[in-house]
Amino acid sequence: MCDVKNIKIALTKGRLEKAAVKIFESMGVDTKELEDKGRKLIFHCENDLYNIDFFLVKAPDVTTYVEYGAADIGIVGKDTLLEKNKEFYEVLDLEIGKCRFALAALKGFKMDEGYSRKKIATKYPNVAREFFRRKEQDIELIKIEGSVELAPIVGLADAIVDIVETGSTLKENGLVIIEEICDISARMIVNKASMKTKREEVMKIIEETSKIINK
């Protein structure tokens, strides 16, 4: 039986989950339960070095679980961190799930053309608001939950701020990147109290994860 303190880790479901599991597997963590999930909600992984409970949640919930201490560590995209702005330590760039935020629009669009305020559709209003604040541009934000690329096509918005990976979705819908905003990738975050009460265990996970991603 492992005598190290139990660490609870919240993983973002989907693409980031799979990449994160590979990292932990490379660290020697037994991830068999995660690979054969069934209907389970919590996956216990234990050996002489680690005593970990993993659970899978949606990206916005990872920050909530970590902030309130239900999870000691979280794996989540930088896009979520920029939008949520909650209280925790951001300790590692895992260099997985790489993509970028960008301003995109139909071909021929220009931000400085015309006199009316430009309408910008986005799933990430805080990110978009900060981007245009830095540029000292007055815009009207429209929050969209679904396929944001549709907004300029049907005339709801002049442009969009969204995550771009390959750019193929933009191209297929006649949109082009006007300006890249920032690069994003998956990050490891840590609950502030856990960094004190479980410091040895948390730091070992951080250090071993860092070794894997820097190989």
Rank of each mutant, 00 (worst) to 15 (best):
N6T: 13
I9F: 12
T12P: 00
G14A: 12
A19V: 02
A20E: 01
V29R: 00
E35G: 06
K37T: 06
H44Y: 06
L49Q: 11
I52Q: 01
D53C: 11
D53H: 03
V62Q: 01
T63H: 04
T64Y: 08
Y65Q: 01
V66M: 03
E67I: 02
Y68K: 09
G69L: 00
K78E: 13
K78W: 07
D79S: 13
L82M: 10
N85V: 09
F88N: 01
E90M: 07
V91I: 13
V91A: 11
E95R: 15
R100S: 15
L103S: 03
A105S: 15
L106I: 13
G108E: 12
F109L: 06
E113Y: 07
S116F: 12
R117H: 05
K118A: 14
E130I: 07
F132V: 03
E140P: 01
E140C: 03
E140H: 09
E140N: 11
I142D: 06
E145Y: 09
L150M: 08
A151T: 06
L156I: 15
L156S: 08
I160D: 03
D162N: 09
E172F: 12
I181R: 00
A186P: 05
R187I: 09
R187N: 15
N191F: 02
K192A: 08
A193V: 14
A193I: 12
E201D: 13
V202I: 15
M203P: 00
T209G: 05
K211A: 15
I212Y: 06
I212L: 08
I213L: 14
N214A: 09
K215N: 12
